[in-house]
């Protein structure tokens, strides 16, 4: 026979654990909602003092798998890396808006950094290359005219909350590449990091280990003006 006090203790513990799990569930739900809302966009806002300039965004549309060109007037900082970050931030803000044609939570805060580097010379390039004073040889070291590699560092929260799917993930990657190339024509290659690390895929599908060629990022069937 189980003593009465043990039964009461058991019931109390049971009730307590149920209450705790309900509270935990609600907290988890609230955190999820906050993540979905993607409201925290403070750190990447371009400074208000910057003059407004035209920026071209290639905005993804899930319904017809296309990129739509959209021109906006944005305050843009002078340095290229910060410009790239501000423009991509605006693009992701469009995706985080309610009723977006390509809904992705996170917004501008999802772009941690954009680094612009000279395109690395292929490691298998012949040793007897062009002479050192030729334009080709100077290009990779020259920060003024040569092609650039953009390294887009996304936040882990963005990757974690990105919808999973071949189309949606590919469109996010394509629209980032195409938008970078449209505004910074020297950007010919794009690589992605998540929280500063290489990552296999964005959300299970789009390959993030590759170098993307920015100029070819516009799908053939999309791009309605």
């Amino acid at each position: 026979m189980i003593p009465r006090y043990q039964t009461i203790l058991f019931v109390i513990l049971l009730v307590a654990s149920i209450v705790m799990s309900v509270v935990l569930w609600q907290l988890r739900d609230r955190a999820h909602q906050r993540l979905l809302a993607g409201q925290d966009s403070a750190p990447t806002q371009a400074p208000e003092v910057a003059p407004a300039e035209q920026a071209t965004l290639l905005v993804a549309n899930d319904t017809d798998n296309s990129l739509l060109t959209q021109t906006l007037s944005l305050p843009l900082p002078p340095s290229s890396g910060a410009r790239a970050r501000a423009i991509l931030g605006k693009l992701l803000d469009l995706y985080a808006a309610p009723d977006a044609a390509h809904p992705v939570p996170g917004g501008a805060a999802s772009i941690a950094q954009v680094f612009l580097l000279p395109v690395p010379a292929p490691d298998d390039a012949p040793v007897s290359g062009p002479p050192a004073n030729s334009p080709q040889a100077a290009a990779p070291k020259d920060s003024g005219t040569g092609p650039q590699l953009a390294v887009v560092n996304l936040t882990g929260a963005f990757a974690a909350s990105h919808p999973s799917g071949l189309e949606t993930e590919t469109l996010t990657v394509l629209s980032i590449c195409a938008t970078l190339h449209a505004n910074l024509p020297r950007v010919t290659q794009v690589r992605f990091l998540v929280d500063g690390q290489t990552r296999l895929t964005l959300a299970g599908h789009a390959d993030l280990t590759r170098t993307y060629l920015a100029a070819q990022a516009v799908p053939a069937e999309g791009n309605h003006p």
């Binding site: 290659q189 690589r191 590759r210 170098t211 993307y212 060629l213 070819q216």
Partner: peptide
């Protein structure tokens, strides 16, 4: 920047 085998949208 590792020399990865391919790149896409069009492979490098």
């Amino acid at each position: 920047i590792r020399p990865l085998p391919t790149a896409s949208i069009q492979p490098l």
